[in-house]
């Protein structure tokens, strides 16, 4: 028996919005420590890794490890039927071929359940090695989304250059070029508005704007985003999900041939 309950459907709606741009379908691996999902996008350029810890749910029970392959478009149709303040419960029997989403209104007067067929997905799991990154940037998630959106008008690629003074985002193309520099915050009044840089050595890397823009669909989940970079290895874009886990995106850099 698997059962996981969240007191507000908003979190699950936001999590789904954060991944469905990149993934059509994905396997939710459930065990007694929580729910994990790892999947590459169709073109195998980026990797999505989601962790929802058991202790972050209002109720969590998973008697046997369970892998639930879901069509995220179908899941989105179901989640659309939930009000933000509904309680949402996911339920499945052991070895089930369906999962049930149950929504309960706050006053308990409306209860809906939606049963969705599960899929057998043949997904490759990748081992991500522990890495000491040359630069780690923490910045407001809204600011990062704005920069990706603005600069993607000027080119397909975004260059991120990080030094201890700050981080510079650049794009260029037919129109011309655009640069946005963010200085490291000197005095932190509001932590969520700070730009913090931990630098071992400076890094300049180039990434496809299209994927960065997809990652920023996770912005409603949290105030701050963390970018971890080292030369010629994938960028990690991490959004923490308060009290329950995180979604991480790994993006392969563009490299000169």
């Amino acid at each position: 028996m698997f059962e996981a309950r969240l007191s507000s459907a908003t979190t699950l709606k936001k999590v789904l919005d954060a991944i469905k741009d990149l993934l059509n379908e994905a396997t939710f691996d459930c065990n007694d420590s929580g729910i994990q999902l790892q999947a590459m996008d169709n073109s195998h350029v980026s990797l999505v890794s989601l962790t929802l810890r058991a202790d972050g749910f209002d109720k969590y029970r998973c008697d046997r490890n369970l892998s639930m392959g879901m069509n995220l478009g179908s899941m989105a149709k179901i989640m659309k039927c939930a009000n933000n303040d509904d309680t949402v419960t996911m339920k499945a029997q052991d070895n089930a071929d369906t999962v049930v989403f149950m929504f309960e209104s706050q006053n308990q007067e409306k209860v809906s359940d939606y049963e969705m067929k599960l899929m057998n997905l043949d997904q490759e799991h990748l081992g991500i090695p522990e890495t000491d990154y040359a630069c780690i940037v923490r910045m407001p998630a809204m600011e990062f989304a704005r920069i990706c959106r603005d600069l993607s008008q000027f080119g397909e690629s975004l260059v991120i250059c990080c030094t201890k003074e700050g981080v510079k985002f650049s794009a260029s193309g037919d129109v011309g070029s655009a640069n946005i520099k963010l200085a490291q915050t000197t005095s932190v009044d509001k932590e969520e508005e700070a730009v913090i840089i931990e630098m071992q050595e400076p890094v300049t890397l180039t990434f496809a704007c299209r994927y960065l823009n997809s990652f920023t669909k996770a912005t409603p989940l949290t105030n701050q985003v963390q970018l971890s970079m080292s030369m010629d290895v994938p960028l990690v874009v991490e959004y923490r999900i308060q009290d329950i886990g995180h979604v991480r995106y790994y993006l392969a850099p563009k490299i000169e041939d």
């Binding site: 350029v45 496809a208 041939d257």
Partner: peptide, 14 residues
């Protein structure tokens, strides 16, 4: 033009 790498080339298949 820089070439786009495949994410799989950086991580090991489990």
């Amino acid at each position: 033009e820089n070439s786009q790498k495949n994410i799989r080339t950086f991580f090991l298949s489990k």
